[in-house]
Design a protein around this nucleic acid. Structure first.
Length: 187
DNA sequence: GCGACAG
DNA sequence: ATCTTGTCGC
């Protein structure tokens, strides 16, 4: 990720009791964080949600949204995990490998592993591990608010992942790119 | 058998 | 993820 460029956020939503799903990728100018493009895709999901198999359900929706995108982002922050996965292949990593674009995993809750509670101050982090393996970092993006789980997706270091995540977070818990993508699929 | 479990 | 009212706090 250059000092300046395009950061994107990716997220999905699905209707309950239906196979209808939506995937969105929103591109923002970095470091200004102004939205420059929003791509929304609607399609059917073919799998139920099963912990560890999220990609089978949501990756097609994200790829559908990406195909509509005109701007090629330098990095994509995905709502979900990267290498912090039972097989080391969460949806963020899967998307990055498929597109050959750097990605970061940013989950709202823990799929596996252990960690200490990060400090209450914005910017505080705690190492997130599974046995001897480092899964990522638990990051406090806002003071006094539940932290997010950041992990390497693809072609980015954990340090860069955390740095970019914090640089993209202004006044909400979730980094702007992911928050905008969430708004696009649900709001 | 019991508890955990991204979205 | 989705359902779903009021409520606590800046």
């Amino acid at each position: 990720m250059p000092r300046e460029g395009y950061v994107a956020g990716a997220d999905c939503s699905t209707k309950r009791g239906s196979r209808e799903g939506r995937g969105a990728i929103v591109v923002l100018r970095y470091p200004e964080l102004e939205v420059v493009e929003t791509a929304l895709y609607e399609g059917k999901v073919s799998m139920p949600y099963i912990p560890g198999l999220l990609s089978f359900r949501e990756l097609p929706l994200l790829l559908g949204a990406f195909e509509k995108l005109q701007t090629r982002p330098h990095v994509i922050i995905v709502d979900g995990n990267g290498v912090a996965h039972p097989r080391g292949l969460g949806i963020a990593s899967h998307l990055g490998i498929t597109l050959e674009i750097p990605t970061i995993g940013c989950a709202k809750s823990r799929l596996l592993g252990e960690h200490l509670e990060p400090g209450e101050e914005k910017g505080s982090t705690a190492v997130w591990t599974e046995g001897d393996r480092v899964l990522g970092k638990v990051v406090r993006t806002r003071s006094g608010v539940k932290p997010v789980y950041v992990s390497v997706g693809h072609l980015v270091s954990l340090e860069e992942a955390v740095r970019i995540t914090l640089a993209c977070t202004i006044r909400y818990r979730l980094p702007e790119p992911v928050r905008r993508a969430h708004m696009a699929v649900s709001g």
